[in-house]
Design a protein around this nucleic acid. Structure first.
Lengths: 341, 341
DNA sequence: TTGTATGCGTTATCAA
DNA sequence: TTGATAACGCATACAA
């Protein structure tokens, strides 16, 4: 099968290449009959325009990209559909770009921006390293979505206040009568949401007159594994149980970890919530389907996805808008936590 | 920030563009000193080559793509990492291309093939429609992964035998003493794995001397929702319970549906497996973490992902190999099923 | 309404 | 070891 080009289509139709181009791109100034002819031969010969050539030539692509590191994270799943809908509703093209583990998302963004002549970028899940300098090389607007780390003054951002909401969760657990609340945390050097949620935990304890006990904080050790996974939640809980420390409640900084925690407790012959309460964070669908359902802070993911695209287009259209959109999370009381007598 | 091009880099260095190109692409015939100079100015001015131009010019790209419809499906999650590893281990670039719900994956493949000068393609999750004719337009080898529908003679494919493994599962359930086994099925017009798993269910019942009862088959109605989801499993189970039909076991054609089924049973005040047994299919991690753990057919996903890339490269290298690689699934006995007395 | 010609940014060929 | 220059396939300004 030969790679047919626009030239050959033109030749086959007995017209010039610009006419073919006009037909493809729905230009107004083209005779309807010739357009039909062109479109027919295109279909007949299965002509597919080369996107690289188009991108090279075009100045305005009407394309925005969403970059995701860890596309398999279920937290992002529901958001992806929303991105698609919101972008195509604005007559733009949508590129979902997966960033591999070892790649720098800003590098990918820089490449993609040139390659596709992007109009804007959403970084889903934030930026792993502090590459603010590199960010400045971006010539198009961008929005950091679901992470509220401090990226510097004017960075556009959509997220919940992770520290505050984490604090609220722990305040709730305290209000249920829990004194010794263990935390399943991220790595010690985490500078992103993991640390913010830890800060919220600590603040709630200290302001609630409880002792912040370092021994009840189970840090993720190896950076190799996925931090927010069930597997990690399981491992950390096992370690916690083995430590012999006393506690009545486990607060995991993600729902997946909370589920891993439950499983570890079950495997140790414990019951949830009768023996131990367990709470998570994120509000994954799964948290509701688990048995018992997991008490969690639900992030309004769909709304945040909508707002991310909305903000991005506001920036593209150079509107003067608030560049930080902070959403409220919702405390969902599941049956994985109980009030102490 | 200006979009700097290769020409300007050349000018800045006082060399020709071809020298810059040589430096970028690690050509051997270039003076080491000039190369250093070029690379330094590139870094200094943050030059990023335009990929569209490169793709346009290059003939061999050393890139393969994996196309996924439904990238949020947790079944694919673990496979993606394997694809990355396997491809980059072969010194090829890897493109993970998400196919939107309404898009035809072959169209996307055709476009991408031209745009990126692909060397090969993996279709993860099979092809939704029978577009065999279009497939022939692909000029590069491709492998259909995880779906064993009949795509015609020579189609390269890596999958489990869905019908056989589904049959095995039901045979197991029969061997546990279950007579009335309800099925949570896909849509009636499904022509893919959903139908194959249904066929296996039916075959097991009939060959096992049990009656195939159409009323125990809960077909998914609306094509709008995600078939293999917890939500759908929940809805179908609710419907089943409401129907008043008698049964002792639910076999869901996916683990997610099985979890939805469990939740529906719990919400109806039933116990699993004491009142009803529940089994799934796929062997998701989640099946092991659920309480009770779900009895399932584990597909060797990592191995299948490896084999998909392996087969693709065999085809790229024009080796004469078996084009169909069928893997065995593993029956994992969870605690969601019990033997009847 | 249509065709011709130019250039997008790069790589590759060729001659120096 | 280098540098001009010709493609790559397309969109578009301009001429017709």
């Amino acid at each position: 099968m030969e790679q047919i080009t626009i030239k050959e289509v033109a030749k086959l139709c007995g017209v010039g290449v610009s006419t073919v181009s006009r037909a493809i791109n729905n230009h107004p100034d083209i005779n309807d009959a010739t357009k039909q002819l062109v479109m027919e031969t295109i279909r007949k010969y299965n002509y597919v325009p080369n996107n690289s050539a188009r991108n090279l030539k075009r100045s305005d692509s009407h394309t925005v990209a969403v970059l995701i590191k860890g596309i398999t994270n279920p937290f992002f799943s529901a958001m992806i559909q929303v991105f698609e809908r919101e972008v195509s509703g604005r007559k733009y093209s949508f590129v979902l770009q997966h960033v591999e583990e070892f790649e720098d998302e800003v590098d990918v963004a820089l490449r993609l921006e040139k390659e596709k002549r992007l109009k804007g970028i959403v970084f889903l899940g934030g930026l792993s390293s502090r590459t603010e300098q590199k960010l400045q090389q971006l010539t198009v607007p961008y929005v950091i979505s679901t992470v509220d780390s401090d990226y510097g003054g004017e960075t556009a951002m959509v997220a919940v206040d992770n520290e505050r909401e984490s604090k609220r969760m722990v305040e709730y657990l305290i209000s249920c009568g829990h004194e010794k609340i263990a935390l399943l945390a991220s790595t010690k050097d985490d500078a992103s949401i993991g640390m913010l949620r830890h800060s919220g935990y600590r603040a709630a304890l200290e302001q609630g007159g409880r002792k912040y006990d370092e021994e009840l904080v189970m840090w993720t050790e190896a950076a190799g594994k996925e931090i927010y996974s069930m597997e990690n939640g399981y491992a950390l809980t096992k370690k916690l149980l083995d430590s012999g420390k006393e506690f009545t409640c486990i607060y995991a900084i993600s729902d997946s970890m909370a589920i891993g925690a439950c499983k570890a407790l079950f495997d140790a012959g414990k019951r949830v919530p009768e023996d131990y309460s367990v709470a998570g964070f994120d509000g994954l669908e799964l948290a509701a389907y688990y048995e018992p359902s997991i008490t969690t802070m639900r992030q309004p993911r769909r709304e945040m996805a909508e707002a991310s695209i909305g903000l991005l287009f506001d920036l593209i259209e150079e509107k003067e808008v608030e560049r930080r959109r902070i959403f409220e999370a919702e405390l969902v009381e599941g049956r994985s936590t109980k009030r102490l007598a």
